[in-house]
Design a protein around this nucleic acid. Structure first.
Length: 421
DNA sequence: TCTGGGGTCCTTTTCCTT
DNA sequence: TCTGAAGGAAAAGGACCC
C-alpha cells in the first residue's frame, strides 16, 4: 500500500523526439554524406539497388560521394520528406516539390525514403526506452510519450535525470540523438521537447506557464495547424498568452463548443489525456500518385491495374497484421488537386482483396470521373482483430457482400466504368 | 514546376427510421 | 399519403500529425 501520509508524486510526462530522424539514420549508413546537402523523398527505386550493383564489393560508407544521384535535372513528381541542415540553407524543406528543390539546390543528393530502415531504428530506440521506463505511448516512427511519474529518477530535477539517462542509453544503442521535454502533461511535454533541439532536455513546471508557454505562437500547440492559426490571427490572437486571455464563452461561440473548450484548456496548459500504451488501428489504406494524370476512359486499363494492386496491397496489409474491416472506401484526387472520397459499409468483415476490389469498385462508380486523376487510394475501416470476429467461415474471401444500406446502381451500362470497375 | 503516403479525429451533411 | 420533427448511423469532407 501507498504511505497515506506521503503526497502522491507529481505527474511527470515526457515527450521524446528523435532529432532529424530519417536523415540521421541515412547518415549512419552513408557517413560520407555528413555536412552535404541531402534531401530524402520522392524516389521510388531503392538507391541501394543502384549503388550496390555498381559497388558490389565496396562497403556502403566507402561509396564515393560523387556516385550518389543529385537533384540536377530531376524531372518527375514527388516531394521532399526531409532535408539536412546543409540543404535547408538553400531554402529547400519538407513538403517542397522535388522539381522546385532541384532549381534551388541542384547539387543536393537525393536519397529515397527507406521506411524499413527507419522502422528498424524505431524499434531499437523504443526498446531501450521501455527497458527503463515501461509506460510508453507510441506516437509514430520517431516520437513517444513516456510516463515518468513512478519511474526511479523520474521526479529528480523535475525529470531531467531520467531524461539524461534515456538520451545516453539511446545514443549508446543506436548512435542517434533525441530531444526530451518533461512536463505535467502531454501537451506541455510536446512543446518542451522543442525548446532545446537537438540533443536537448527541457523541464516545464506548472509555474512556468506564463514565462515559458504564453510567449509562444499558437501554432506551437499540437493540434493548431495552419487553418486554425489563420482564424485565430484574424481575431488578433497570435500567442498562447493572447489565446489564454480570451474567455471561454467567446471561444466556444467562435470555434464551436468542443474546439473552443479545448483551445481554452490548451492555452492554460491543461491536458489530462493519459499515456496510452496500446491502441488498435482504425483503418488501413494504400494510395498512389500517378507519374502522370490518368483519365478514367483513355487510361482505364492502366487505372484498373493500379486499382487492383491497391486493393491487393490493403488486403495483404490487413492479413499480415491480422485485421478485418467492413467499411471500404476509395479516395480520388483530381488534376486540380480536389479530393473526393466514397465509402460503403458492408455486412461482413473482410480482408479479402477481391471483396475489397468489388466494393471499392461500387464506390468508384459513385464518384465523378470526368476530370483527370492524379491519385487513387483504397481504404478499409471499421477494423476489428480478425480473431475477434465470429464469422462462420474463416475464409474471408468467400463471404458474400452486399451493401448494408441502399441498393447501389450497378453501373453496368455506365460508359466510363462499365466493365472495368 | 505545384503540392507524398499513412494515419486519426472532428464536423457537417445526408439518409433512414420512427 | 403527406409533412415535419427528431435522432442515429453512415457518408463525406477536411484539419491535422508524423
Amino acid at each position: 500500500m501507498v504511505n497515506a501520509s506521503a503526497p502522491p508524486p507529481a505527474r511527470r510526462i515526457a515527450h521524446l523526439d528523435m532529432d532529424a530522424f530519417y536523415a540521421s539514420v541515412e547518415l549512419l549508413r552513408y557517413p560520407q554524406l555528413k555536412g552535404l546537402p541531402v534531401v530524402i523523398g520522392g524516389g521510388r527505386r531503392r538507391l541501394d539497388d543502384a549503388l550496390s550493383a555498381a559497388y558490389a564489393d565496396v562497403p556502403l560508407h566507402k561509396i564515393p560521394v560523387d556516385r550518389f544521384p543529385t537533384l540536377q535535372g530531376y524531372a518527375g513528381r514527388g516531394v521532399i520528406t526531409t532535408a539536412t541542415y546543409a540543404a535547408r540553407q538553400f531554402g529547400v524543406g519538407s513538403a517542397m516539390g522535388l522539381m522546385k528543390a532541384a532549381k534551388l539546390c541542384p547539387q543536393a543528393i537525393l536519397l529515397p525514403v527507406d521506411f524499413d530502415e527507419y522502422r528498424k531504428y524505431s524499434r531499437l530506440f523504443k526498446g531501450v526506452i521501455t527497458e527503463i521506463a515501461p509506460l510508453m505511448e507510441d506516437r509514430g516512427v520517431d516520437e513517444v510519450y513516456i510516463d515518468f511519474t513512478e519511474v526511479p529518477g523520474g521526479q529528480r530535477e523535475g525529470g531531467r535525470v531520467l531524461a539524461r539517462l534515456l538520451q545516453k542509453s539511446i545514443f549508446d544503442a543506436t548512435g542517434l540523438t533525441c530531444s526530451v521535454g518533461v512536463a505535467p502533461n502531454k501537451l506541455l511535454a510536446k512543446m518542451a521537447s522543442e525548446f532545446n533541439k537537438p540533443n536537448g532536455i527541457a523541464v516545464v513546471q506548472p509555474d512556468d506557464l506564463q514565462t515559458l508557454i504564453w510567449p509562444l505562437a499558437c501554432r506551437k500547440i499540437n493540434g493548431i495547424g495552419p487553418k486554425a492559426d489563420e482564424k485565430l490571427r484574424s481575431f488578433g490572437i497570435e500567442t498562447i498568452g493572447q489565446l489564454a486571455a480570451r474567455d471561454l464563452a467567446w471561444l466556444m461561440q467562435t470555434f464551436g463548443p468542443r474546439t473552443g473548450a479545448w483551445l481554452h484548456n490548451a492555452a492554460h496548459g491543461r491536458d489530462d489525456r493519459p499515456v496510452v500504451l496500446e491502441s488498435e488501428p482504425v483503418s488501413m489504406s494504400r494510395e498512389t500518385t500517378f507519374d502522370r494524370d490518368l483519365h478514367a476512359v483513355r487510361d482505364r486499363a492502366e487505372l484498373g491495374a493500379v486499382f487492383t494492386r491497391l486493393c491487393e496491397q490493403v488486403a495483404a496489409d490487413l492479413q499480415r497484421k491480422g485485421y478485418v474491416g467492413k467499411t471500404i472506401g476509395i479516395k480520388l484526387r483530381y488534376d486540380d488537386f480536389q479530393a473526393v472520397t466514397r465509402d460503403l459499409t458492408v455486412d461482413q468483415y473482410t480482408a479479402d482483396s477481391q471483396t475489397i476490389r468489388r466494393v471499392a469498385g461500387q464506390c468508384l462508380k459513385r464518384a465523378p470521373l470526368q476530370k483527370k486523376l492524379r491519385l487513387l487510394g483504397v481504404r478499409v475501416g471499421a477494423l476489428l482483430p480478425a480473431d475477434a470476429v465470429l464469422n462462420s467461415d474463416k475464409d474471408w474471401g468467400s463471404t458474400p457482400v452486399k451493401p448494408a444500406q441502399t441498393a447501389i446502381h450497378s453501373g453496368a451500362n455506365d460508359p466510363l466504368t462499365g466493365q472495368l470497375f
